[in-house]
Computed example of a mutant assay.
Amino acid sequence: MSEDKLSAGSVTSLKSPLRGTLDKPLRHVVSNEELDALCETRREHITEYVWAAIGIAVGSLPGTVALLHGYITQGTAYGFRPEGLLQFGLFCAALSVMYSMGMIARRRARRLRDIEADIRMRA
């Protein structure tokens, strides 16, 4: 029975051993055509989300304008209908999605241009 037990020296850890750091970074040879293709490839669908949010905002705009016009002209006596409030909520949500996704897309595009310029300056 004592043979079935593993000794402490024969047990290995599940973590992978740490690799040593390199003195200098690895450089890869990339042609201009490959770099252009790499920079043009879109991996996320952020622009599609922005266009969908624009479509929702345009579709809910008439109901939102009617709701706001009624509230401005009649004040607090204006009776809000559920569908008008739903369209107003959709409009506000679409605006927030457009803004946030637009900021993300612009930031990623700028970072991609910086990386591309950095790679081109190495050559």
Rank of each mutant, 00 (worst) to 15 (best):
M1R: 01
S2D: 04
S2I: 05
E3K: 08
E3G: 04
D4Q: 09
D4N: 12
K5C: 09
K5Y: 14
L6Y: 10
S7D: 09
G9Y: 06
S10Y: 04
V11L: 15
V11W: 13
V11T: 04
V11P: 05
S13E: 04
L14D: 06
L14Q: 07
S16I: 13
P17D: 01
P17H: 03
L18M: 07
R19T: 08
T21A: 06
K24F: 11
K24G: 04
K24T: 11
L26W: 05
L26Q: 07
H28F: 15
V29W: 01
V29F: 04
V30W: 05
V30P: 00
V30L: 12
N32F: 10
E33W: 00
E34M: 11
L35K: 10
L35T: 06
L35Q: 03
D36V: 14
D36M: 09
D36E: 12
D36F: 14
A37T: 08
L38C: 03
C39V: 15
E40H: 13
E40M: 04
R42D: 00
R43H: 15
E44P: 01
E44H: 14
I46W: 07
T47Q: 15
E48G: 10
E48Y: 15
E48W: 14
Y49A: 11
A52H: 02
A52K: 09
A52T: 14
A52F: 09
A53H: 01
I54G: 01
G55D: 08
V58F: 03
S60K: 00
S60F: 02
L61G: 00
P62L: 02
G63T: 05
G63M: 13
T64L: 02
L67G: 00
L68Y: 01
H69L: 09
H69R: 15
H69P: 01
H69A: 05
Y71M: 12
I72P: 00
T73L: 15
T73I: 13
Q74D: 03
Q74H: 13
G75D: 05
A77K: 15
A77F: 11
Y78I: 07
F80V: 15
R81I: 12
P82N: 02
P82Q: 02
P82Y: 00
E83N: 06
G84R: 00
G84T: 06
G84V: 07
L86P: 03
Q87H: 05
Q87W: 04
L90V: 06
F91Q: 00
F91E: 01
F91P: 00
F91G: 00
A93W: 06
A93E: 03
A94M: 01
L95Q: 05
S96D: 05
V97L: 06
V97M: 10
M98H: 03
S100R: 06
M101H: 07
G102S: 06
G102D: 02
M103C: 12
I104M: 13
A105R: 12
A105C: 06
R106C: 04
R106Y: 09
R107W: 09
R107C: 11
A109Q: 13
R110V: 08
R111M: 08
R113F: 08
R113K: 10
E116T: 10
E116G: 02
D118H: 08
D118F: 14
I119T: 03
R120G: 11
M121G: 15
M121Q: 10
R122E: 04
R122Q: 12
